[in-house]
Amino acid sequence: MHGLVRTLKGAVIVAATCLLAACGSLGFGGGKGGSSIPVVRDPAPIVSGTMRPYQIRGRWYRPSEQPDYDEVGLASWYGDAFNGRPTATGERFDMHAMTAAHKTLPLPGLVEVTNLANGRSVILRVNDRGPFVDNRIIDLSRGAASELGMLQQGVSRVRVRYVGPAPRGGGIGEARSYAGRGATRPEPTPPTQREGPFWVQAGAYSDRTVAQIAAESLGERVSIDRARVEGREIYRVMIGPWDDANAAEQARQGAVARGVRDALLISGR
């Protein structure tokens, strides 16, 4: 989410939490897909430099205009470890604001994110790049994850749909959570409570020595767990346990801040 922060010449750093009345740049109604989709009356220009191809850990990403972008996949979220840091657009990350990061959509832009487990949807301002984990399609602020009811899960299956350019002046206005669009909305299902203990998996390696080296900088609660997956023996670097999912998620974010980008929250080890 944070590997591509650049010094943007002339970028205006704005607060991502301005209210609708203050911004005066968007309304709700008549947009693509239904009355809950915002209509941006004063769109912000794409931030210079954010549409160039870039490389992260040997893989190339190629941002582009994607007006019909509509994808289902996994979403993760981040918070304290990155609060206040600059994003790819030059805005400051506010973990309580309705924002997100995407690998290739135009910046800044708006997306509609729907939690497929409960049918809850939000409109978010995309102002950063990430997440650079193969099986995830979007990274959410803590505030967005809270609106979607996915704080405890850490990672949830979502639908992401590009809405269009974000408004000039920051934010999307106000947090916007709504029921979706009739028959296209998945039926809500009761949230499930995950049972502990909770662990953070900070890596999986085929060589025990490599796993031990990876574990050395991760604190006192680290252990090496040997497992067999599809006939292969692997060594998992595990942090924990915790009885509380939120405490484990804080530890996961701490591991991400120390460079373990694909740290996973798991339960019932």
Rank of each mutant, 00 (worst) to 15 (best):
L4D: 12
R6K: 14
L8R: 14
K9H: 11
A11I: 08
A11W: 10
I13Q: 11
A16P: 14
L19M: 06
L20T: 14
A21M: 07
C23G: 15
C23F: 10
C23I: 07
G24K: 11
S25R: 11
S25H: 15
G29H: 11
S36K: 08
I37M: 01
V39Y: 05
D42R: 14
D42V: 15
S48E: 12
S48F: 09
G49V: 07
R57M: 13
W60C: 05
Y61R: 04
R62Y: 15
P63M: 12
S64M: 11
Q66M: 14
Y69K: 03
D70L: 03
D70A: 06
V72A: 12
L74I: 10
A75M: 09
S76K: 02
W77G: 00
Y78S: 00
G79E: 06
A81L: 10
N83H: 15
G84E: 05
R85S: 12
T89P: 08
T89H: 08
D94T: 11
T99F: 12
K103Y: 09
T104V: 13
L105M: 10
L105V: 10
P106A: 05
P106M: 04
G109E: 06
V111N: 04
V111S: 06
V113K: 01
T114K: 00
N115S: 14
L116G: 00
G119N: 01
R120Y: 00
R120F: 00
L124A: 15
L124Y: 03
L124W: 01
N127V: 07
N127S: 11
D134N: 12
R136W: 15
R136L: 15
I138L: 10
L140G: 07
R142T: 05
L148Y: 02
M150A: 01
Q153H: 08
G154E: 03
S156W: 01
V163S: 01
G164W: 04
P165R: 12
G171W: 02
G173H: 00
G173K: 03
A175T: 09
A175D: 11
A179N: 07
P188E: 03
T189N: 10
T189W: 04
P190R: 11
P191C: 04
P191E: 10
Q193A: 15
R194Q: 07
G196Q: 08
Y205V: 08
Y205K: 02
D207H: 10
R208D: 02
I213S: 08
A215D: 07
A215W: 04
E216L: 14
S217L: 09
S217C: 04
L218P: 00
G219R: 08
E220H: 09
E220Q: 13
D225K: 12
R226W: 04
A227D: 07
A227I: 15
R228Y: 12
G231T: 10
E233K: 07
Y235I: 02
V237F: 07
V237K: 02
M238V: 11
M238A: 04
G240M: 02
G240P: 01
P241T: 06
W242M: 00
D243C: 01
A245P: 14
A245H: 06
A245D: 12
E249N: 14
Q250V: 14
A251N: 02
Q253K: 05
A257K: 09
L265A: 03
G268I: 03
